[in-house]
Design a binder for these strands. Sequence first.
DNA 1: AAAGCTCACAACCGCTATCTT
DNA 2: CAAGATAGCGGTTGTGAGCTT
Length: 209
Amino acid sequence: METMKKAGRGKGRTTSQKEEEGTVRKGPWTVEEDLILFNYILNHGEGLWNAVAKASGLKRTGKSCRLRWLNYLRPDVRRGNITAEEQLLILQLHAKLGNRWSKIAKHLPGRTDNEIKNFWRTKIQRHMKASSSSENMDIRHRSGNSQSSVMTTTDQGSSSKAFDMAESLISPVTTTTSFHVLEQSNDGYWNAEDLWPVQLLTGDHHQVV
DNA sequence: AAAGCTCACAACCGCTATCTT
DNA sequence: CAAGATAGCGGTTGTGAGCTT
């Protein structure tokens, strides 16, 4: 599967290293683990993640199972690039809510807080940095005081700035900034939906591994 | 062609909120 | 009401892929 080509995350330890340390597995999920979790939740439903972790036989923490399910395996998870409309929504919601990623995600069906957070950090924040340095101004004094108190100073600045940009996003033609609405391309990603056929093939009876 | 740099993103950690006993 | 357990959230990190020099 495609995801696995990016295997090897997680604070620099290899899965096998950790595996030997104890009973809890860390690091990237394998296809087998995905299938186990997927099938288990299919049959028993979400929630009680520690129980899921135990009962499914996965050597993962409940936390890890939850994260994997929410961010990756859930059938309604949309993967691939964020559309212009979604970007605009994110900008607007962030201006309103601050770094409340899960709340923002609720307004974007199929998108996860993690995905939005990543998007914000890699795309928006980067852009903010670039443009603010070129403007050479102190954005901290800009408006944006309606932000959540949790937000950092730079968050506030970037957020209000981002919101300013929202307008230009609606009509990208007029955009003079270096921010570009992402190209739409759905290639290169496997979808959790890919598991469905697999699941059908293996059937409910199957217990992977 | 190789090396270095940047980007994207999955997954971890720590903290907080909520639920249960 | 207090303490412990569990779930959820946001921040951060590590790594592979792709791009640039």
